[in-house]
Amino acid sequence: MRALNDIYIITRRQLLLLSRVPEVLIFSTIQPVMFVLLFRYVFGGSIDTGQPGGYVQLLMPGIFVQTVAFTLAGTASGLAEDMKKGLIDRFRSLPISQSALVIGRTLGDSLLNIVVLAVMGIAGYVVGWRPSSGIGNIALGFLFLLFFGYALSWVGVLVGLSASDARVVQNVSFIVTFPLTFLSNAFAPTTGMPRALQYFAEWNPVSTMVAACRELFGLENQFGATAGSFPSEHPLVTSLFYMVVIMVIFVPLSLRKYRNYAE
């Protein structure tokens, strides 16, 4: 019970921090909204999708996934900041649950994702995104996105605690997330890629997530399949599997790192 209370307080701290620096919230939403507009109007015209409603229907799930993938960087740099300021030492010297700081941070970052996804959803709607699968499936899609962000947030914990410097954290997170989001079906069909990359793109968790969201939002996943492979045929299951694997690996690793972080 005490642990839950500790986590709750840390999560609230996270939100308080956000409310004191609204720029963070503004910039975390402006960037994805900008992506929506750029892709919708710059590339949208030249990509023939054959889907009713056009490119924006396929684009939105891609941008949603890309945005939640960047939770990794947010969590990592936030923790690196705390570490630099000695805040982690203070928290670790308190008689509180030792994992509360980390869990609270990941939860806080997920709450931020809710806001960001909502704003993006609205922006998408304005430029023509019309999910057609009914409220239940749409909600499930967003839940999926939140979960994915949450799982990656744990990778961010490890990155943040391992790096020696906040700038390094930014770069590392960038190097991890950028290829993953672009070597995927998020913005363009994978079928145009070199053969080897196609395999990578197919098994890439970002692709399976995008495909899963498209399915949940009522679209045919036309960017995915190169050869009727398992991930492109079963994106929901594969994505779920990835999330579980990420959590199973990174939650214990990150918590251990946190406990011994100065050793």
């Binding site: 004191r20 300021k85 030492d89 203070r90 308190l94």
Partner: peptide, 17 residues
């Protein structure tokens, strides 16, 4: 941890708060 207080070498408080 229940019986100690620590003030580390660098003031560890949330700058923004």
């Amino acid at each position: 941890r229940e019986v100690i207080g620590l003030s580390g070498q660098y003031a560890a408080v949330d700058e923004i708060l």
